[in-house]
């Protein structure tokens, strides 16, 4: 291993021997991982006071084994249920979930809605590559209409979820969407989410050059990042655009940022009131 050129964030926060990312070349998951380490570094947080949880999928390999912290790599779609247990039993810990669009919009969809409704103090980073990456590129509930995948060779007949709207409606305290092109905005949102006293949700539109790229005919990850930049529309601007004008665009920005007592805090207050 080349020891001369090791990134300072790896030296500080990564598990020795796990520096090499498990993802395919150019995959967006590594960009999201770096952004989280940067957010933690800028806030000077102690990794020993953070628990990371993830489900199943490529995106769920972001914190484990890379992050030198306690990581719960759980079952498909259930990371939020495990994370809720961690936060309620030990509210001193900061809890961060990494999940995929298949993981938390398909099999774990109800966990996502319920966690937002409960306003449990968890930061959820959902990496939306608009496909099931790990299992070979099957259509997901987030795949855009008309897009070809391995299981929709004539184009997707269904319509995708707007996950930010879903989570907002369910009651989250913080909701934002960025792409892997918008790294600085993403770091700033992650910092807000890490400090938020309620359910925080950040959707990151990400490139899967291998499973998504092969079927849409764009295998170059850099080209995907350039496309994300071109088709992103800030939330404020999108408000004045029609549904037709927003076709094929990605609306980015912060959608919700409110203060409301989180479940773990309310539960602690109840225990104190009952002298438990």
């Amino acid at each position: 291993m080349d020891q001369k050129h090791v990134h300072p964030l790896l030296v500080k926060y990564a598990r020795i021997g796990a520096y090499k990312q498990p993802h395919c070349p150019g995959c967006g998951n590594g960009i999201v991982a770096q952004c989280m380490l940067r957010a933690i570094d800028e806030l000077k947080l102690d990794m020993d006071k953070i628990v990371f949880a993830s489900g199943i999928g490529c995106s769920s390999w972001i914190p484990s084994p890379l992050f030198n912290a306690d990581v719960l790599h759980t079952t498909h779609g259930r990371s939020l249920a495990f994370a809720t247990g961690v936060k309620l039993s030990n509210p001193e810990l900061r809890v961060v979930v990494f999940t995929g669009d298949g993981d938390s919009a398909a099999i774990g969809g109800n966990h996502l809605i319920q966690a937002a409704r409960k306003n449990i103090e968890i930061l959820t980073v959902l990496v939306n590559n608009r496909i099931y990456g790990m299992t070979g590129g099957q259509v997901a509930p987030t795949t855009p209409h008309g897009v070809k995948t391995k299981t929709t060779p004539y184009g997707n007949l269904e319509y995708p979820f707007d996950l930010c709207k879903l989570v907002e409606a369910a009651g989250a305290s913080y909701v934002a969407r960025w792409t892997t092109f918008h790294t600085r905005q993403l770091v700033s949102s992650m910092k807000k989410g890490l400090l938020k006293k309620g359910f925080s949700f950040i959707e990151v539109i990400s490139q899967c050059p291998v499973q998504y790229g092969t079927f849409v005919g764009i295998r170059d990850p850099a080209e995907m990042l350039h496309i994300f930049r071109k088709i992103s529309v800030p939330f404020e601007k999108a408000k004045n655009m029609s549904r037709e004008e927003l076709e094929g665009k990605i609306v980015i920005g912060e959608f919700v940022d409110i203060e409301r007592t989180g479940l773990a805090e309310a539960y602690q207050r109840l225990l104190e009131m009952m002298n438990l």
């Binding site: 964030l9 990312q21 150019g26 967006g28 590594g30 770096q34 790294t183 600085r184």
Partner: peptide, 10 residues
């Protein structure tokens, strides 16, 4: 640096 998925450049 910020867009490197492998933290291989800084």
């Amino acid at each position: 640096e910020e867009h490197c998925p492998d933290l291989a450049i800084f």
